[in-house]
Design a protein around this nucleic acid. Structure first.
Length: 313
DNA sequence: AATGCACACAACCGCCTCTAC
DNA sequence: TGTAGAGGCGGTTGTGTGCAT
């Protein structure tokens, strides 16, 4: 039924990307910018389908991707947003600009889902024992009663949904600019955009390129995909390991010169996830998301809220 | 040291949405 | 207005790695 998948074409390579392919893709995007993925395999000679190229870029090569373990704050944010939005990982990812939807999805599936299930089971177990004692919610007993915080939760969810809709819409609501008065009535030149959050990753790519260039002799086109994959992972991992440490990275930081040019930074400033100004989103939600006191002051309550305050579970 | 298992994550698949014609 | 194609998204799978036995 329907169209055959674009990746069904004969000769289209699948599997892990090699460093060579990464470099080709990054170089091409440097020059032409992201988008028009259909033309990427044709123009680069990559034996990859357009989807694969886009995915590789957005999930791995795109500047600004933070790797490593999720912080508690990120974790709580994901839990809240998942409760609010469901499995809309792209929407959730828009509130964690340094994380890809794939990363969040993976993290949810491998960590948070289990964690919440465990929490739920613990709560149920505790609830059963509590029922016998006549106190259903004793373990996560909030300061306010369940009925009270349920009503507050519903109100907050409605408010948050409304805010979220506005935030996700094409037009930025005016209140989002409250924290940026300098941008309100000035020319575009005087309104400095926030520093690109992906700068660290541009450096990562630069390092990746450097690492690859330093040992070209080790590379062989006859290497198996698996060997390439392993090296790719190693190189990328090494580069990525620095990403969360240095937020000042610039694409032009490549001392070897031209592969990654400073001018290309503008490219990556253009290409970004929509609505990727973390401080804006955080300013909008941080109170609601991180005000743990309002349900009793601990993470358990928050998780309990996420579990019980939505139909998604 | 060898084996099995669980975990993490990159990548693929298929469906949906959007847009140009 | 309908259709085809490209891009986007979420679910799922495959594979490498680390740990326990």
């Amino acid at each position: 039924m329907g169209r055959p998948p674009c990746c069904d074409k004969i000769g289209v390579k699948k599997g892990p990307w090699t460093p060579e392919e990464d470099i080709i893709l990054v170089s091409y995007i440097q020059e032409h910018g992201p988008g028009n993925w259909r033309s990427v395999p044709t123009n680069t000679g990559l034996s990859r389908c357009s989807k694969s190229c886009r995915l590789r870029w957005t999930n791995y090569l795109r500047p600004g991707i933070k790797r490593g373990s999720f912080t508690d704050q990120e974790e709580k944010l994901i839990i809240h947003l998942q409760a609010l939005l469901g499995n809309r990982w792209a929407a959730i990812a828009s509130y964690l600009p340094e994380r890809t939807d794939n990363d969040i999805k993976n993290y949810w599936n491998t960590h948070l889902k289990k964690k919440l299930i465990k929490m739920e089971m613990d709560a149920e177990t505790d609830g059963e024992s509590s029922i016998k004692k006549g106190a259903r919610f004793s373990k996560y007993q909030p300061i306010i009663t369940k009925g009270q915080w349920e009503r507050r939760l519903q109100t907050d969810i409605n408010m948050a949904k409304q805010a979220l809709q506005e935030a996700l819409s094409m037009e930025k609501p005016s209140f989002l600019y409250e924290s940026k008065p300098s941008c309100s009535s000035h020319s575009s030149n005087s309104c400095q955009p926030p520093p690109p959050t992906y700068a660290s990753s541009t450096e990562n790519i630069s390092k990746l390129l450097q690492n690859w260039i330093r040992k070209p002799a080790q590379k062989s086109s006859s290497d198996s995909d698996r060997a390439n994959s392993a090296e790719s992972t190693q190189i990328s991992g090494t580069a990525n390991s620095t990403s969360s440490e240095d937020k000042t990275g610039r694409f032009g930081d490549n001392k070897r010169g031209n592969i990654v040019s400073p001018e290309s930074c503008s490219l990556f400033q253009v290409e970004s996830k929509p609505s990727l100004e973390p401080e804006l989103h955080f300013s909008l939600f941080e109170t609601w998301l991180f005000d743990e006191n309002y349900v009793g002051g601990n993470e358990s309550n928050m998780l309990d809220m996420a579990l019980e305050g939505t139909e998604l579970f």
